[in-house]
């Protein structure tokens, strides 16, 4: 079983987001970068699957050299090797094209992504890879298992869950509840230093989109406080002042 885990490097969840260069770039000053939390679930599940069924886990990232420290963390958690495609991740479509190029020559049985990255929130790469590779793609999975040469997924649907059996190769994206993310131990951290991290150059791809500008949400007006002894008044305010309920 050869599994590839696609990994984004994102600002830590506690980051206060601001922008620089005339609001065209994320202000990275003081920002800690981490493995995208959903990709970390994919990675952990991939490792669990190879522990049970044998095989290898490769992580792939589209990024520049500053991503290497975070990629090493994925190796410390337990991936066997890593590939970094040496380019800025312009958008989801660019990233997927680069990953698809690596996957085509890699002979993978299963490719995992996160449900979305917590920075660009595209949720695109799983489906894009599916179509680029002509593979089935199952999105937002809370369970990923392998049985009799097939994959069993449980995925979120609007208002519920669904179990799906899929042929391999396939691509799937991870949702919370898939597994408990693993924390690297000292042995893993030591081993990660010498595990292979291959850097490859990107293929030429037309840019489908261009990020022009960023904005932060408009600041809120001061809160209107209601006395707790007269809390029922809130319902009246919501109806007649905010006009937000019927």
């Amino acid at each position: 079983m050869k599994i590839l885990v696609c990994m984004s490097v994102v600002p830590d969840t506690t980051t206060k987001i601001s922008f620089t260069d005339n609001n065209t770039k994320l202000n990275t000053q003081g920002v800690q970068f981490i493995i995208n939390p959903y990709d970390e679930l994919s990675l952990t599940r991939a490792i669990e699957l190879t522990e049970k069924h044998g095989g290898t886990v490769t992580v792939a990232n589209v990024g520049k050299a500053d991503a290497d420290a975070v990629i090493r963390k994925a190796l410390a958690i337990g991936a066997n090797d890593a590939i970094r495609i040496n380019a800025d991740p312009v958008d989801g479509q660019y990233v997927a094209e680069q990953l698809a190029h690596v996957i085509r020559s890699g002979g993978y049985d299963l490719v995992l992504t996160g449900r979305e990255s917590i920075d660009y929130n595209g949720g695109q790469v799983c489906g894009l890879l599916g179509e680029l590779l002509s593979w089935p793609a199952v999105n937002v999975c809370t369970r990923i298992d392998l049985e009799n040469g097939k994959a069993i997924f449980e995925r979120d649907i609007d208002g519920g869950r669904q179990t799906v059996t899929s042929s391999l190769p396939a691509v799937a994206s991870a949702q919370k509840d898939l597994c408990e993310p693993r924390i690297p131990n000292m042995k893993g951290i030591m081993a990660a230093r010498t595990k292979p991290l291959t850097v490859v150059e990107p293929v030429a791809v037309e840019f489908a989109s261009t990020y022009r500008q960023f904005e932060t949400p408009a600041p809120k007006q001061a809160v209107k406080l209601i006395d707790a002894a007269n809390a029922g008044q809130l319902i009246d305010l919501l109806r007649n002042e905010a006009k937000i309920i019927a």
Partner: peptide, 19 residues
């Protein structure tokens, strides 16, 4: 150009769609 949510509700991006 479209406006889309980014950084999980902490920002918005104006993106030009080229194709």
């Amino acid at each position: 150009r479209i406006r889309r949510g980014v950084f999980s509700g902490k920002g918005f991006a104006i993106v030009e769609l080229n194709k």
